[in-house]
């Protein structure tokens, strides 16, 4: 890790562990902040993670299940948009040479 490599950041006052879900701030927003997790969300998340080969500890599955309803709401907004018939996600060109 070069000249530094002393982990000195760990000795200073660091980010706290509270705060709402969102990617902007310095806090660890993946810590659980709310009450219980809906069983349906937890089961769905656990199944998707397992299918992907992931085996996180239970508390982290809980946290992902916490986040899941918000994630789904965000995704569903996209399905509500009429993207027409001609808009593809990616353009593949067989003649591309590089």
């Amino acid at each position: 890790m070069g000249d530094r490599g002393d982990g000195s950041g760990a000795t200073r006052r660091g980010p706290d562990d509270a705060g709402p879900v969102g990617p902007v701030g310095p806090v660890d927003q993946t810590r659980s902040t709310g009450p219980g997790v809906a069983a349906d969300d937890r089961a769905a998340v656990a199944a998707l993670l397992s299918a992907a080969g992931l085996d996180p500890p239970a508390d982290e599955i809980d946290r992902l299940a916490d986040l899941h309803p918000g994630l789904r709401r965000s995704v569903e907004r996209f399905h509500a948009v009429d993207a027409g018939d001609g808009s593809t996600a990616a353009i593949f060109r067989a003649g591309e040479v590089s």
Partner: peptide
């Protein structure tokens, strides 16, 4: 990620 005092890197 986030500033992370659990890992051996500066904040």
């Amino acid at each position: 990620g986030r500033p992370d005092t659990s890992k051996p890197f500066p904040v």
